[in-house]
């Protein structure tokens, strides 16, 4: 697959730049590769994308299943605050996917992301928390 951002799939770094973070996140999500997408998270990072807080193997299994049908993500950054080695990012997102009934499904909402800078200087996802305006991911 071709990424139009500077991105090493073997050793991903979301960087300290908010727009780069968002662009990498979108492109990896839209690649449909759940295993690759999972590498944007630390092993014990918490993703609430399924509606439940998932870590480790459960999170990987969900990402692989959810991304297998190649849903299409759009996301725009609403705010970003960096405090040392941790950052809070807000994005408005919309995802075009396919529902269980095979019909097109649109998921929209706002997502809060917490990112951490690792000892090696890379930035990765620590926590995500989508709040859906429409669709499957709820409070």
């Amino acid at each position: 697959m071709a990424f139009t951002v500077d991105f090493d799939p073997e050793n991903p770094d979301l960087t300290n730049d908010t727009d780069t973070q968002n662009e990498i996140f979108i492109q990896v999500f839209n690649s449909g590769d759940g295993e690759l997408f999972n590498r944007l998270y630390l092993e014990d990072s918490i993703s609430n994308f399924s509606g439940e807080p998932l870590t480790g193997a459960d999170r990987l299994a969900f990402f692989k299943e959810f991304l297998a049908s190649k849903p299409s993500l759009k996301a725009a950054v609403t705010h970003a605050y960096v405090a040392g080695d941790v950052a809070l990012i807000g994005v408005d997102y919309s995802i075009e996917t396919t529902g269980p009934d095979g019909e097109p499904l649109l998921l929209e909402g706002n997502c809060t992301d917490v990112l951490r800078r690792l000892d090696d200087g890379r930035w990765l996802m620590a926590i995500d928390r989508p709040v859906a305006a429409t669709g499957l991911v709820a409070e």
Partner: peptide, 13 residues
């Protein structure tokens, strides 16, 4: 309302 704790980092609502 909600808290998510991973290592030494937490998100609190």
């Amino acid at each position: 309302r909600q808290s998510f704790v991973t290592g030494d980092t937490a998100l609190l609502i």
